[in-house]
């Protein structure tokens, strides 16, 4: 097994130019609704996000990673439908496809690979991510790790701008989430080898509602 740790760090780096910095993962509207206001509530939010949106994203990223390696275009269509069904919020679906498209645009320029054609032009972000991870020679667990990392690191970075929290305390919260993310990555990989309809399907109704509220807000710092 070849070790591709450097490529993994490159893809997981928040500076990877795929436009993710413009999003708060639902944190901005959740703060506006008063549900997150300090470090403890932020940490609970991040944990909830990892267990729901993060776990779903990790399962689909791992599955997409395996699918690109198999060059199975039909399975990408099935994956897309399965993930669509797990996202009741139209605003979240739009954001997910926008982020997936941006990721493919960046990866296509950074590491062109004809296999990316199978993914489609506007994949959901976790599916685009899984494909990107495969292009870089990485495996399912890497895909799950990046998806889980992004599910909490993005909102934590946004929290520094949205709340009076210093960056050390938000990163301490991320560090405490490490074991949970590792555990969820393992579950995601296991699920990715099974039937598509058995992929993780955890939902967060308050995040869905927050996403819809945010989409119609005129003044906002983050796009989602």
């Amino acid at each position: 097994m070849v070790d591709h740790g450097a490529a993994l760090l490159l893809l997981a780096d928040g500076r990877f130019p795929a436009g993710g910095y413009a999003h708060s993962g639902g944190l901005e509207p959740t703060i506006a609704a008063g549900r997150v206001h300090d470090l403890a509530t932020l940490e609970a939010f991040l944990q909830g996000r990892a267990l729901t949106a993060g776990a779903v994203a990790a399962g689909f990223a791992a599955a997409a990673c395996g699918t690109l390696s198999d060059e199975d275009g039909k399975r990408f269509i099935a994956l897309d439908a399965e993930l669509d069904a797990r996202m009741p919020s139209p605003a979240q679906r739009t954001t997910s496809r926008q982020l997936g498209r941006q990721l493919l645009r960046a990866v296509g320029a950074i590491r062109p690979d004809p296999r990316l054609e199978h993914v489609g032009a506007r994949p959901h972000q976790p599916i685009g991510l899984g494909a990107a991870v495969a292009v870089f020679g990485l495996g399912r667990r890497d895909a799950a790790w990046v998806a889980l990392h992004e599910s909490v690191a993005g909102p934590a970075a946004a929290a520094v701008r949205l709340l009076s929290l210093d960056p050390f305390s938000t990163h301490a919260a991320l560090a405490r989430l490490g074991p949970l993310l590792d555990e969820l990555a393992g579950s995601a990989v296991a699920a990715s080898h099974g039937e598509l309809d058995d992929l993780p399907a955890g939902g967060a109704p308050l995040l869905d509602i927050a996403a819809e509220d945010h989409a119609v807000r005129h003044t906002r710092l983050f796009a989602s």
Binding site: R15, P17, A18, G19, Y21, A22, H23, S24, Q102, R105, A106, A158, R161, R220, L221, F222, A223
Partner: peptide, 15 residues
Amino acid sequence: ETGACPHTAIRDDIT
């Protein structure tokens, strides 16, 4: 929408 990072959107992450 540039997520409060207008400089990033035109220089570091132009996607």
